[in-house]
Design a protein around this nucleic acid. Structure first.
Length: 613
RNA sequence: GCGCCGGUGGCUCAGCUUGGAUAGAGCAGCGGCUUCCUAAGCCGCCUGUCGUGGGUUCAAAUCCCACCCGGCGCGCCA
């Protein structure tokens, strides 16, 4: 059978047809040897062999045992006369494995067609109509966002993008805790003029009586100034704490209009939103925690639990439930729901919030710091106790600390995202000026912003969420190696090359990217680097699907880096423009495809694919 | 003390979900590459008891157990 005529159909995942075909053929051949196996099961066993040993590998140890033979004999027997068909260039047995080599030209054609025809859709799945809510970031509106908290946003936003790419209908939510102790403390201190603040709060904030926000200062930076002092005061001073409680109580009773109470948190939130937007993070909905108190749903939840057989009263009058039968550590078997004064605790309001989410969405995902793991289990137990069959899903990440220790606003040991982004911008601008003195100021600024914010986002994303990060300035601001600028640079090179092709010979470029990209059959054998790049490009769709399924969002940062590596190596080794004329169409198509995949993968991590830098 | 999560070259990390063939990158170090598509690049060299010890298996960085180290948590905070 000729293997030179590539299939004309377009596949979202170029690997799907050969995998399925190989699995089917194997199923038939294994059946001849008394092994009845579903093709899907065989496909699940197909793995990647080591470099240079082919493209698909099937370990035969387990099945050889079942067939009472040794793996190598089985592999050799299967390799014997295995049909190559449209997809394969070779099949060989090796040490108990059966290795399949894909027909390079088939893989090249299939990949180029998929990438160039599907374009921005390459890697994405069609809509599946499933409604998902991803709640992330949800920082207390008490001041500036620090780098640790921003990990939540970066990881969460990437997960949102991955789920969307996988076809989900995703709503990204930010839960605004305006009524908890922390936000209430800030509302309380700003409810008085500065000259009425306790002296220690005022001096700690560095504000004198009658101070006003300096021109251009972000609202979260300004309004957050008294927070460390005020929160310390409230922790130590019973009278101050009492004032905060009363403020909350009055708000809950409707004696303070929501608009008025929320003024400070809302303005802080505006600052937070601006910072998050700078790293590409946007939300569909902001849900105010106090809403669940004001609309009565918290009361309903409390009534429900109070009436349940698990309810109990603590000394002092607080309401709790006995959750001994639920999967919780022993000490948490009793879950406290209210304070002694009857006011609701966070977890109760969270129950109300989740009841609403579960009613609206098919899947509910919470992106939380690892310190919330136990809270989440408590919440899940309460939801179950409340008779809810479905459960929210938890996505956690570990903390970001500083070399000196844990970040602490109170100890002044904290790096804010604003400061980090500013420093990144400044350093990036320096680099741009150095490397491209020819660019005008506006473009240099624009590139610096993109490179700087990209580097920061990339740095915090590229590590498996479960791992703790020790933040170091030099690493966060690295513009080479495993970093966003490395990827952006590869993209800029590809864009530049295509720009030149467009300028010098637009007809040839259009021809190369026509409906049969690269104009197969090829004039000869591809370079190794061409095939390596193509193989990397072909893996993108299955990667996106895997990330959406597992939440391994760091792989989405690692992948474009791998594409950039392959592209840079190729670019260095093979001359495209002015090289071998017969190869020009294919190579232009390959560069265009690499650029497209870089764009698509960078889009998923909200890093701008620069055309020049 | 109990629970959850991490521990892979000097440093920072992939790989662990679903065990598979010589454990991959980046940074740092050393040595090369620019009359030619952007050198934020490329090529080469150097660096590993995969925390420790047991177990399961034809096969363990990957699964199980114990221990060590680090992070996080363990009711009137969120």
């Amino acid at each position: 059978m000729s293997a030179t005529a590539p299939s004309e159909s377009i596949h979202r995942d170029p690997w799907a047809p050969p995998r399925q075909w190989v699995a089917r053929e194997l199923s038939v051949r294994l059946a001849h040897r008394g092994l009845t196996l579903d093709p899907a099961a065989i496909e699940g066993e197909l793995a990647s062999p080591p470099e240079g040993m082919g493209d698909l590998a099937l370990p035969l140890f387990r099945w050889a045992k079942q067939a009472k033979t040794d793996p190598n004999t089985l592999a050799t027997a299967l390799a014997e006369g295995f049909p190559l068909g449209e997809y394969l260039a070779g099949v060989e047995a090796s040490r108990g494995f059966l290795n399949f080599r894909l027909q390079p030209e088939w893989l090249a054609a299939a990949t180029l067609r998929s990438v160039l025809v599907l374009a921005q859709e390459y890697g994405r799945s069609p809509p599946n109509q499933r409604r998902v809510c991803v709640e992330h970031t949800s920082t207390n509106p008490t001041g500036l966002l620090h780098v640790g908290r921003s990990r939540n946003g970066i990881v969460g936003d990437t997960y949102v993008r991955a789920l969307r790419a996988a076809g989900y209908d995703v709503t990204a939510q930010f839960y605004v805790d305006d009524i908890g102790r922390q936000a209430a403390t800030l509302v309380w201190i700003w409810s008085k003029p500065i000259d009425q603040w306790p002296e220690e709060v005022r001096s700690r904030a560095g504000l004198s009586a009658g101070a006003v926000a300096p021109e251009g200062m972000k609202s979260d930076a300004w309004l957050g100034k008294p927070y460390p002092g005020a929160s310390e005061l409230v922790a130590q001073d019973a009278a101050a704490a009492q004032e905060v409680s009363q403020l909350v109580a009055r708000f809950e009773r409707g004696e303070i209009p929501a608009d008025e109470y929320r003024r400070v948190p809302r303005e802080v939130l505006e600052g937070t939103k601006a910072t998050l937007a700078r790293v590409g993070i946007r939300f569909d909905e902001f849900v105010w925690e106090s809403e669940f108190v004001l609309d009565g749903s918290v009361s309903k939840v409390l009534e429900l639990f109070a009436a349940s057989p698990h309810a109990r009263r603590e000394e002092g009058g607080a309401l709790a439930v006995d959750a001994s039968g639920w999967d919780l550590p022993k000490k948490e078997a009793v879950i406290l729901l209210t304070r002694s004064d009857g006011s609701s605790l966070y977890v109760v309001r969270d129950v109300a919030y989740h009841l609403q989410k579960l009613a609206r969405f098919e899947r509910v995902i919470d992106v939380l710091g690892e310190d919330h793991k136990l809270h989440f289990r408590t919440l899940s137990a309460l939801l179950e106790m409340a008779g809810v069959a479905r459960k929210p899903e938890l996505f956690t990440y570990s903390f970001v600390s500083l070399p000196e220790g844990k970040m602490s606003t109170r100890a002044g040991r904290v790096v804010t995202l604003d400061d980090l982004l500013e420093e990144a911008h400044v350093r990036a601008l320096e680099e741009v000026r150095k490397r491209r003195p020819d660019l005008d100021a506006a473009e240099a600024e624009r590139i610096a912003e993109s490179v700087g914010t990209g580097a920061v986002r990339y740095h915090l994303l590229a590590i498996q969420p479960d791992k703790p990060i020790t933040f170091r300035w030099e690493e966060a601001l690295s513009f080479e190696g495993r970093s966003a600028p490395f990827v952006q640079y590869a993209h800029a090179r590809a864009a530049s090359l295509l720009r030149r092709a467009q300028e010098s010979n637009p007809a040839e470029l259009a021809h190369a990217l026509a409906e049969r990209p690269g104009l197969f059959p090829l004039p000869g054998t591809m370079e190794d680097r061409e095939l390596a790049l193509l193989k990397t490009l072909s893996r993108f769709p299955s990667l996106v699907a895997r990330v959406a399924e597992t939440g391994a969002v760091h792989l989405l940062a690692l992948y474009p880096h791998e594409v950039a590596e392959r592209l840079n190596e190729y670019y260095q080794a093979v001359r495209v423009l002015g090289g071998e004329p017969n190869w020009l169409p294919f190579r232009l198509a390959l560069i265009a495809a690499a650029r497209q995949v870089l764009r698509n993968s960078l889009e998923l991590i909200a890093i701008e694919p620069l055309d020049r830098m």
